[in-house]
Design a protein around this nucleic acid. Structure first.
Lengths: 341, 341
DNA sequence: CTGAAAGCGCTTACAG
DNA sequence: CTGAAAGCGCTTACAG
């Protein structure tokens, strides 16, 4: 065998002619143990690189100190900022995190939930896959261990949910465009009634209504699986209208960047002829030219908040499952794709 | 208690008036068990949503089927593509993955290694933090469990290492510039002798040498912590030279994008006056205009390969630790920032 | 074909 | 102040 075995309590006990119980207590600073014994044990432990087997420890207490995290796509920059918050906070609180990618496949998502339970995670943090139908599996999980949803959530699942102020953020983004003199503001959103898209659309409508700007269905465009390419396509449609919009609010940055690329192609001046605002403050938003005005979503804070609530629920279990929604504030960042006020 | 306990073998046994051993064997398709018993057990197990406690299982065999992964920064797109490969492949092979971010802090990295051992991971996959000094801790880990390095590696650590063909990739990138008629090719690299930077620089030198192009120290620029901003700064220096380069090879995409931004500012035509080539094929490379020529690094493949080697070593332990380096082929992608041949 | 017992590494109530 | 014993959920050699 090339690999060294880990040192165990038993070995320490044998070396010192003590019982396993005593060694255990010495290492855990139990008050009963004499200082001299405690010292001896600790010295030997250090010398032999003893490190407790957390498995065995958790085994007794039914706690693994491992949390499960499921996200649709690990490559989205926004997701990675959330993960940063999750990893950092969980590590300082003494938990490790198992991450899985559902790839927006709700079948896969169910399987992952299942294996996470099998691996004995103490709780699960999750952003739902698109078109999640099988709520049943998720409810079943929530009945066993604490579950917290973030970003992609659903009010059909009774649990803590951490989101951004989607509606308000969209409201401010659109109001900003109105304040810079724009009156014909298009929106590019998703067809399916995803929580996020729906909320952002509501914010759009409220901004127009409150500023007495008529709603025009012709400049409300929807697409499935919103993306850069889709942004381009829909921008082309908007450009072909008799009455072009003078601003476009895209509910994701990638779509907004597609819009900018389409506008470039047709030599449309940004923001003079058409202003553009996105949503997310992805890293792309400062690479594209003109730099994109967008809504900054504080990913790290979302991650930190979500994991804190989860761990709180793990360590202080409550009897009742209540849907509690925590809203994290966002921040509109105005850049060159819209007028600076 | 609101949370349901997980079903155990004991409960199944009690329900059926069988022993725990029999139930265990039935569930594991042991040949000794009669079909009727086996059926009964399986039906009840399904009904009660029994799922084995992998903790208890692993506890006996000293296998947790959990792997540790440490990366410097989870937000780099390239890193996320590697993680995708790791997650996907490990899940199909029946392993789960704990991810930690060292933030290029080698102190933190050592701690992470330590807690991963404590959590009983079966093996560790790691990209080294910049300026990793305490090789000792890493060697200590490698003596206990299988360790595989990827991307950021070091030949001082005797273990399997999965990297791209850094030297060759840089060679082809520079040769491509030479083939398009460029003769004064600058390089922007890192000061510290990181494995990657060193190799890419070697490729640069070899390309120039083989094509009999003189090396000019004035257009070999180095920086610490290479980034977009540093790319801009160094490009400015190059532009201020009496004899400007006619091409710039930046050893990372972000630096290359900084270069493009600087060239834009000084109205330099790309690629006519100065061509630019980056390294990584990050998502930015098609957002920037002109689109960036760059070296595509197949992240998923790197991840998959690394995890396969790790699991191979876990499941078939060898006595000897040998440094084995696996090189993954890259692919030069020519876009608008350099001439299409 | 089925069961009782040991053991994986640890903690802790119970004795002494 | 220290130790023997039970138990966490599972598997498996040993009996029968």
């Amino acid at each position: 065998m090339s690999k060294k075995q880990n040192t165990t309590l038993k070995e320490l006990a044998n070396h010192l002619n003590l019982s396993i119980s005593t060694v255990s207590r010495a290492l855990n600073n139990h008050p009963d143990i004499s200082a001299s014994t405690s010292d001896k044990v600790k010295r030997l432990a250090k010398k032999l690189h003893y490190s407790p087997n957390l498995f065995a420890k958790g085994f007794r207490s039914h706690k693994t100190h491992i949390l499960g995290v499921i996200v649709p796509n690990i490559s989205h920059y926004f997701t990675t900022t959330i993960l940063k918050g999750i990893l950092d906070e969980s590590e300082t609180l003494g938990y490790r995190v198992i991450i899985s990618e559902s790839k927006n496949d709700d079948q896969k998502q169910s399987e992952m939930l299942q294996t996470m339970i099998q691996f004995g995670v103490d709780g699960i943090l999750m952003a739902l896959a698109r078109k999640t139908r099988s709520i049943d599996d998720i409810l079943e999980v929530a009945s066993r261990i604490p579950l917290v949803l973030f970003d992609k959530v659903s009010d059909k699942i009774p649990c803590t949910q951490v989101v951004i102020n989607e509606e308000e953020a969209a409201y401010y983004a659109v109001e900003h465009l109105i304040n810079t003199g724009k009156t014909r503001i298009a929106i590019i959103k998703e067809t399916e009634q995803s929580f996020n898209s729906k909320k952002r659309f509501q914010g759009y409508l409220r901004a127009l209504n409150e500023h007495k700007i008529p709603i025009d269905e012709k400049i409300i465009l929807s697409t499935e699986d919103i993306s850069l390419e889709k942004g381009k396509m829909l921008a082309n449609i908007l450009l072909s209208l008799k009455k072009r919009p003078d601003a476009i609010f895209a509910i994701t940055d990638s779509a907004a960047i597609g819009v900018i690329k389409a506008l470039h192609k047709f030599k449309v001046n940004i923001p003079e002829e058409i202003a553009v605002v996105g949503f997310s403050n992805s890293i792309h938003s400062t690479i594209i030219s003109p730099k994109l005005s967008t809504v900054d979503q504080p990913g790290e804070k979302i991650g930190r908040t979500a994991i804190k609530y989860l761990i709180e629920e793990i360590e202080n279990p409550k009897d009742d499952m209540i849907t509690k929604t925590i809203e994290i504030k966002t921040n509109l960042i105005v850049r060159d794709s819209s007028f600076i006020p």
